[in-house]
Simulated assay, not measured.
Amino acid sequence: MAEYAEITYTVEDRIATITLNRPQARNGYTVRMSDELADAFGRADSDEEVRVVVFTGAGDHFCVGADLSQGGFDFDGEPDGPWQEPAGRCAKRIFLMNKPVIAALRGAAVGAGITITLSADYRLAATDARFGFVFTRRGIFPEGASAWFLPRLVGMGTALDWMISGRLFGAEEARAAGLVQRVYEPDELLGKAYELAREIAASTAPVSVAVTRQLLYRMSGLDSPLPVHELDSKLIAGLPAHADSVEGVVSFFEKRPPKFTLEVGKALPAYLPWLDS
């Protein structure tokens, strides 16, 4: 998509910013927005100049959930293949990312407005943030693959409480449960998100981040550590020929910032088991 109507996309200082941009509707989630988000995250992922993505919303609310202003849900017309629900189109694309994603959430982050962020690496919240997996209160069902992501973040007991009751809860409860990592005042939130993004961009190796991110998602659910150790062994055995690992050690001893040069699109080990998925 050359132009976006419901989001904005910018890149500066190796950080891509993806912003929900329907503030007049409190960033109500639409099918078009979902497809623009999937396109934008793919665009950031394929751009070697982008190291980190900050995901936020224009105005006082991140996203109030599905836009019901037309009286119901938008099912996108006649699909060419099996229909894909809109929240999952975004959550799935973030899951597949090689770049870390930092979601900065203020105001309402409800329904699709929270499920689209569950595959992000960080969720930072403002003190005014309010969350809710409100599906049971609308007679509908969880989406965005949230039944897979949420228990992994907060545990099954908390996931059951939030999803069965559909109740709203605040930033401190979200932080205590592990849904968000940090809470800031509303006027500090976005600055803190960029501060974290700059730290990651300046201090970490992009190929190492890409492999680590997918190792955690793809391997942590296995019923044995043995396959993980086999993959670890291949990765560690290759370090002497891995330019970034050499630079990481040398820069440490020389007490200077590292200058990592390997690109994700060219340097991912071909044997990684998820590259064919």
Rank of each mutant, 00 (worst) to 15 (best):
E199P: 02
A201Y: 00
A201E: 08
A201L: 02
A202I: 03
A202R: 14
S203L: 10
S203K: 08
T204Q: 14
A205F: 02
A205T: 02
P206L: 04
V207C: 00
S208G: 10
V209L: 09
V209D: 07
A210F: 04
Q214I: 06
L215R: 04
Y217W: 15
R218W: 15
R218M: 14
M219E: 09
S220G: 07
S220K: 06
G221K: 09
D223A: 10
S224M: 12
S224F: 13
P225Q: 03
P225T: 09
P225C: 05
P225S: 08
P225M: 08
L226A: 11
L226Q: 14
V228I: 15
V228M: 14
H229T: 07
E230L: 11
E230D: 10
E230K: 14
L231E: 01
D232L: 15
L235V: 10
I236V: 15
L239K: 12
H242K: 12
A243S: 09
S245R: 04
V246S: 07
E247M: 05
G248P: 01
G248F: 05
V250F: 06
S251I: 11
F253Y: 15
E254F: 00
E254G: 02
R256M: 11
P257G: 00
P257N: 11
K259Q: 15
K259S: 14
F260R: 00
F260M: 03
F260S: 00
L262A: 13
E263P: 00
V264D: 00
G265H: 05
G265C: 00
G265T: 03
